[in-house]
Design a protein around this nucleic acid. Structure first.
Length: 260
DNA sequence: TGCCAGGCTTCAC
DNA sequence: GTGAAGCATGGC
């Protein structure tokens, strides 16, 4: 099927550090294992996508996954006109959307992400999934794995965190729908989930855009451009989107510098 | 070799 | 509540 899109760039989303299992097939062309399915999608023109799913599946699953009901142009246009750094970041990051990903996969992935780099996160998650390309459920990890087995695929000290989280999540099931402050608090009750990882889970797994994850990159940005404190109160329902723009922008600048 | 990576827990104060 | 040490691993 085909669909019209706006503010959408597959390559930028893939390179924005929120998803770790997209497989690049070519320019703006990916195989995406997500939501218990496998989608092949390409973007032959900026405002057009082609995907190998039915219209019904697109409407019911992928439209939500890509957050196509949110007006990202409006978010960009609401940026403080005096904030030149943020405006530049939003311009460079045009097309990035916050994916609404499976909650358990997001939780597990960002537990693995702590004090880690993106290529290695991808490699570990690849070994965790194995050849089947399906992300193991919490119950599957709780039953079939052990902390020692997780260490063997490179999780390091995070192995215990992931194993304990799997056991608990398999037992309790996903949390009830909660507002952002409660959801964040609930997630931080998991061992190995601190403020930053909880915010990533809120943002990418629960669609709570108030969440504003502060990692080493965002810390550097806020220190350099915002006197250590980004004005989240100005952007209540979109702070997480802007965080993602800045994260992408800063990293793209550094990568461009390194390749010179 | 030392530093860094989408940080967190623990412990001292 | 804040601050520092320790934590696995691999790339640079």
């Amino acid at each position: 099927m085909q669909a019209a899109v706006t503010f959408f760039d597959l390559d930028k989303i893939a390179d924005s550090g929120q998803c770790f299992r997209w497989k690049k097939l070519g320019r703006r062309h990916y195989r995406i294992p997500a939501m218990g399915r496998l989608l092949t999608i390409s973007q032959p023109a900026p405002d057009l996508i082609e995907a190998d799913c039915t219209q019904e599946a697109w409407d019911q699953i992928w439209q939500s996954y890509f957050d196509l009901d949110t007006d990202y142009n409006a978010i960009r246009d609401a940026i403080d006109p005096e904030d030149h750094y943020l405006r530049a970041a939003a311009h460079e990051a045009e097309g990035i959307r916050i994916l609404r990903q499976d909650l358990w996969e997001t939780m597990a992935s960002f537990i693995i992400s702590q004090n880690n780099n993106i290529p290695r996160i991808k490699a570990i998650i690849g070994r965790l999934c194995g050849p089947g390309e399906a992300f193991p459920s919490a119950a599957a990890i709780a039953q079939d794995k052990s902390a020692a087995a997780l260490r063997q695929i490179g999780l390091g000290y995070r192995a215990e965190y992931l194993y304990e989280a799997a056991v608990r999540y398999a037992q309790d099931g996903p949390p009830q729908k909660m507002a952002y402050p409660d959801a964040r608090k609930h997630l931080m009750d998991y061992k190995g989930v601190g403020g930053k990882v909880a915010d990533c889970i809120c943002l990418f797994g629960l669609g709570l855009k108030e969440a504003f994850p502060i990692d080493t990159w965002i810390r550097r940005i806020t220190d350099a451009h915002y006197a250590g404190c980004f004005p989240v109160e100005r952007y209540l329902q979109s702070a997480g989107v802007l965080q993602q723009f800045m994260f992408y922008y800063e990293r793209s600048v550094v990568v461009a510098m390194q390749s010179k």
